[in-house]
Structure formats: structure tokens, C-alpha cells
Amino acid sequence: MTPGWRELYKRIEELHDEYFVGRWRSGMQREAGRQQDALMAMLFLEALGIPNPTSYYAFELYPEFVEEFHRWHQRMGMNRFPEPGVCC
């Protein structure tokens, strides 16, 4: 395809995505958030003071998710995490 046609095709593709895919964006992100929240709860239940039988197995995943943890507790309505030194 010549650059002109490629440009046009790209524009059509973008418009199509906006038109048909964009309608579902918020629902999808909310759903993804919910699934992520379930995983975060699994990982960090003990940080909230709830005994968690899976924590031994999930331990090595902690470093991967520490950054996420801050955003998670904020999303859950807790602006600052009360335990000092955990994240914020």
C-alpha cells in the first residue's frame, strides 16, 4: 500500500475502533479492575490483618505487585495506608 492509502486505512481503523470498541471501554476496564482487585485481595489480605492461607505461596509475587498495591488501596477508598513503611 502507498503511504496515502495506508494513512487512510489507519484512519478508518481508528474510527472503527472508536465507534465499535470504545462503547465497551469503561465496562471492560471496570471488569479488569474487579478481577485485579480479587487478585490483590488474595495477595495482601494479611496486610489488612486478615489471616490468609495462601500467603506462603503468594509471597514471591509481592515485589511484582507492590506498586499496584498503592493504587489498589486508593481505589478501595483508603487514601493512605495506615501501616507505616508498607507503601505510602
Partner: peptide
């Protein structure tokens, strides 16, 4: 917020609204 509240082009929004 990039999730629910997103300013959207009026033609695109019309498409979303109409198909809903």
C-alpha cells in the same frame, strides 16, 4: 478518569448512543 468519564467526539458518541 479514562474509564467512565471520557470526553468523546460527538459522531463517535452518537454511534455509541444509537447502537445502545
Amino acid at each position: 478518569d479514562g474509564v467512565d468519564y471520557v470526553p468523546t467526539n460527538k459522531h463517535v458518541l452518537f454511534g455509541h448512543h444509537f447502537t445502545s
